[in-house]
Each structure stands twice: as C-alpha cells, then as structure tokens.
Design a binder for these strands. Structure first.
Length: 544
DNA sequence: TCTACTGCCACGTTTGAACGGA
DNA sequence: ATCCGTTCAAACGTGGCAGTAG
C-alpha cells in the first residue's frame, strides 16, 4: 500500500506523505529472527521493520537528465556541493522510532576515467581510495515522523579532492566514478545501533552516480548545471550560456569557450566512436562481484563490462536485488536474503540488515582503539573474508567463522582485468549481487590505511554482501558521548555526538579533524561527515 | 606539449541580523 | 514586550578562465 502511495506521488508532492500506521509492535523487540521472507516489506506491517521503509529520490527526472549526459560533480580543495543535490522522500518509517540517515559515496568501480572524444573512457586503474567518510544528516537522530514530514536533504554535503581535508567533506579522487548511497539506521533508544537488534537499510539510486572532476568536461553537463542550479544563474543568458562571458569581455557575440570548441570539434566523431565502443564492450565477460565497496573498494564491478553502448545508459536491469540482513544468534552471523525486484523505483537498490552488536567492544579494534574508547567516531567494521565471490551466499556468510557482527559485506579485491582503452560505460550500475555495503565510521587511523591494505581485504570489507552503516559512537572522553550511538539515547542528553547547532558553520579541525583523535569528534555541525574506515576482523561493537 | 589542477573573478542566491510597524 | 514582515549586507555557491604543475 505504501508502495502504491509512494509511487503515485510525484517527487514534489510527496513532502507531506506520512504514514498513518503506527504500531508499538517490536520497536524494541530484537529482530534476530528476521527471515528472508519477513524482510520483504509487508503491507500489513508497514512500519514495523526497517525494510518497510521506502525511499524516493527527489527530482529524479533531473537526476536522470544528468545521468543520461554523464553526471559530473566538481570537487575542489575547499569542497563543493553536489548538484543536483541528494534529496529523498522517506516513507514507511515508524513515526515514533528514531532513525539516523546518512550517506556515503563509494567508488563505482576501480577505474580512472578521461573525457575523450566527447565521452568518458577508462583511462587506467583507479588511484587508491580516499579515506571513506560519511555524511550524517544534521537532523539525525530523529523520529520517523520527522523524516517523513518533509524531504530529507543532503544538499550541504560537500565533495573535496583534498586528501587532508579538515572539514569533514567527503574525499574523492578526480576523474573517478562514484555512487552515492543512503543508509537508514534505526536508532531507537531500546534498539540502539550496534546492539543485537539494530537494523539498517541501504538505498542506492543509480542515476545519482557521477564522475568527479575538477572542471567540467562535458558541455552538456555544464549547461544542465547552469540551467538548473540557482547559484549558476549568473551564467545563464544565452542559449549557449556564453552570453555572460561575452558581456564580460565587452563583446556582442557569444564567446565560445575552449572546451566548447574542443567538444564541438570532436562531437562529430563521438557518435561513431560510441558505436565502436559499444561493440568492444559487448565482448567483455561479465564480472561477478557487483557490490564491492566499503570505504575504498569499488561499489560494484566496473560498468565498462556491461554490454551496452558508450553513452550513459538509460536502461537498467529491472531486476534489482533486495537484500536483507539479520542477526543470527549472537549477531555473529548474517542471514542474507531475499531478492526481489524493487518496484517503486527501478533505479534504486536497497539493502537491509540488522546491525551488528557492540557486544564485541570496539576497544578491541586494532584501528580504532582510541576512537572506540573515546567513542568519537562511529565505526562499523567489517572484515575481509574470501567468501565474497559474490553475492550473497547466505550460507557462506552465516557459516563463516570469520564473520561476525561487524561484518557487513565480504570484500573482494578489485578485479584485475585490464581495462585500458575500454570505453567507459556510463553509470550502468550493476549490483547484481549487491549486498549491503556498509559505511564504516572508524577511527582516524583507519582512514589512513593504504590501498594495499584494501586490496588485502584489510581496509574494509566489502564485497558483495556485507555492508554496514556506520554510526557515530560516542566518545567516552568527551563530555557526553554515549548518545552517539544511534538510538542509544536522546540527542539532548549527549551533546558530544549529536549535539549540534543548527545552521552553524562547519568547524574545521577543532570539531571535525580530518583524522579525528580521541575525544573531540563530534557530529554536530551541519555536515556530519565521517571517515569511513576500514574494519578488520577484530572490529567490535560495544554496548552503549 | 598536454592534461589536470588551483586560485581568482563576477554574478546570483541564501541567510540572518537589524529595523520598523502592528 | 512580543510578533511579524521587510530590508539589506555579508556569506555562500556557481562556472569560467588564466596560470601553474607534473
């Protein structure tokens, strides 16, 4: 029912959608018994389970426009906002339950791209992943009623290419492809994140994938930005958007930029090139792992292997996976589950799981001992296992002795196939085996893990089936912290992590150091961006 | 030489403080 | 004294471009 309701509402008119269903069932009840079947949204219990939550991408049509042209996002040293901004409409939450909404941006593949012949081409292997960071919505934690009352906007999220960024912006590599993800974590007081009962889900909208750039490469994208971004109105004025330039230069005729000239000169060749590219791609075998990322690892296997044209794909495999996770027994096992087409938004994938418990104290985590102790950074670690061949092999995960509550997805090393010269397959995200990947908020040191570690599976776990939200943990050293754990307590009671000043500017270093050290990390300000750290087998959660 | 990146610029939007009137 | 609406300036966000580094 909710699905129908949601689908029937346009992006713009959904802001007031609220669930009228309210239940006290299970809000505090452990979800240990979540089964594959139960993980599937049920119209009868729309707000009992986190998997009942529906997320609709706001301005999806606009995103599609960009997607079709090959979305590019500017990244600067100071940080640049995304446009279109990431906004979603959430429904299906329990109005009284508290949730934490956060996003992260993960590599879509392990390639570096270049814009050549008016299209994106694979230019080599990706550079080592930047320290993963999370952006926790400033309102978090908040009740389901709050989230459902209006659009949830992540417009203040900023992207940077400054590896030492002190502002907490999400660090990306230029000329790489990324995929934003939304994570919803249950933060109910009696079902705190990290506890055996904590649950979360991950939503991925494929049309939000983009390539990070330091300056726009595709003129179409530039024009779309100018036409749609209010802040860029100053560049409007003529059909080509160059009128302003001509005015500035005192000319009566539009000035064609260098890039425009280049692009126009080569545009005549792009079409043919694209066809040729498509042919090449078609010949590539599909590679299995689809969702392999976690703070550094690619989100999915490279798109370039998809047998599609070289243009940004507008069609996707309608069969999306619906992943469910739950704790088994003492939360040391994950039960993967169900698979179903996601009807509401064909472009979205979401993953559910019951979060691992903190039972194995974070203190034991090799990378976050301090953070954990201080609980400044919320981290969720996962460990590498070799079971990640793909997907969701429930049994494998469940039986794997190495898997514990902290494991979200099994991480697989980047595929090593050669990609040189292979045309870029624009944003046809393939999450065939997608498993929930999880953001991991970790100790600062974790963020410094080298790619080599990632490759070794140390960096984060990921691959196909585990993922995990990171939730800020409180810092014991700080004045207040416990609350940091989602759902552990009311924000008011624990200023350190969730205490924030609405609208207050970001605080560099002091409040949000690039590599936070103990005791001072807070998610207060508008941008709760965390580093996604690696997790290791030793990652543990502590009870709040 | 080429490509990617940086810093600066002008312009428009957003935000919030200040002010005045009801 | 409080509330509400308006005004205005500073802060912020944009893409373009020239210069620079590798």
């Amino acid at each position: 029912m909710l699905q129908e309701k949601a689908s029937a509402v346009t992006d713009e008119c959904m802001s007031r959608v609220q669930t009228d269903v309210e239940t006290d069932l299970l809000p505090h009840q452990p979800r240990l018994g979540l089964s594959t079947a139960s993980a599937i949204p049920s119209s009868n219990e729309p707000d009992q389970n986190i998997e009942s939550i529906k997320v609709i991408l706001h301005e999806r049509e606009l995103w599609k426009k960009f997607h079709e042209a090959g979305t590019e996002m500017i990244i600067t040293k100071a940080g640049r906002r995304m446009f279109p901004s990431y906004k979603v409409k959430v429904t299906g939450m329990n109005p009284k339950t508290k949730y934490i909404l956060l996003t992260d941006i993960v590599p879509a593949d392990d390639h570096r791209y270049k814009f050549c012949d008016n299209k994106w081409m694979v230019a080599g292997k990706a550079e080592p992943a930047m320290p993963g960071r999370l952006y926790v919505h400033p309102d978090s934690p908040a009740t389901g009623a709050h989230w459902m009352r209006q659009l949830v906007s992540f417009q203040k999220l900023k992207l940077t290419n400054n590896h030492l960024d002190p502002f907490g912006h999400i660090i990306l590599n230029s000329m790489h492809k990324y995929q934003p993800r939304l994570h919803i974590v249950k933060a109910d007081e009696n079902n705190a994140f990290g506890s055996k009962n904590t649950a979360y889900c991950t939503h991925v909208f494929h049309e939000t994938a983009f390539i990070s750039v330091t300056s726009y490469q595709n003129h179409k994208i530039t024009q779309l930005k100018i036409e749609n971004n209010p802040f860029a109105k100053g560049f409007r004025g003529s059909e080509e958007g160059d009128l302003r330039v001509s005015r500035l230069q005192g000319k009566e005729y539009p000035v064609i930029s260098k890039n425009m000239v280049r692009q126009r000169l080569i545009s005549s060749h792009s079409h043919l090139a694209g066809k040729l590219s498509a042919g090449v791609l078609t010949g590539h075998p599909q590679v299995l792992s689809s969702f392999q990322y976690e703070a550094g690892a690619p989100l999915s296997n490279s798109d370039h292997q998809d047998p599609i044209t070289n243009h940004f794909s507008q069609s996707r495999d309608p069969s999306l996976l619906y992943h469910c996770f739950k704790h088994r027994d003492n939360a040391r096992h994950l039960e993967l589950g169900c698979k179903r087409p996601y009807l509401e938004t064909s472009s979205e994938e979401h993953y559910f799981r019951s979060a691992p418990s903190y039972e194995s104290s974070l203190l034991s985590h090799p990378y976050c001992s301090e953070a954990i102790t201080s609980r400044e950074a919320c981290m969720y670690g996962s460990m590498e296992t070799e079971s990640g061949s793909g997907a969701a092999d429930t049994d494998d995960l469940a039986n794997s002795p190495s898997i514990n509550c902290n494991m979200w997805a099994t991480m697989q090393p980047y595929p090593r196939y050669s990609v040189e010269g292979v045309p870029y397959q624009p944003f046809t995200a393939h999450f065939t085996n997608a498993a929930a990947v999880t953001p991991v908020v970790t100790h600062p040191t974790s963020s410094m893990v080298s790619r080599s570690q990632t490759d070794l599976g140390v960096y984060n776990s990921t691959s196909v089936q585990r993922g995990l939200p990171i939730i800020p943990t409180s810092s014991s050293s700080s004045s207040s912290c416990s609350p940091a754990l989602p759902g552990s307590r009311e924000r008011s009671g624990h200023p350190s992590l969730y205490h924030k000043k609405p609208g207050s500017p970001l605080r560099p270093h002091r409040d949000f150091p690039a590599y936070p050290t103990q005791g001072t990390l807070s998610i207060r300000d508008a941008s709760y961006q965390y580093q996604v750290g690696l997790s290791s087998a030793g990652t543990h959660w502590t009870e709040s």
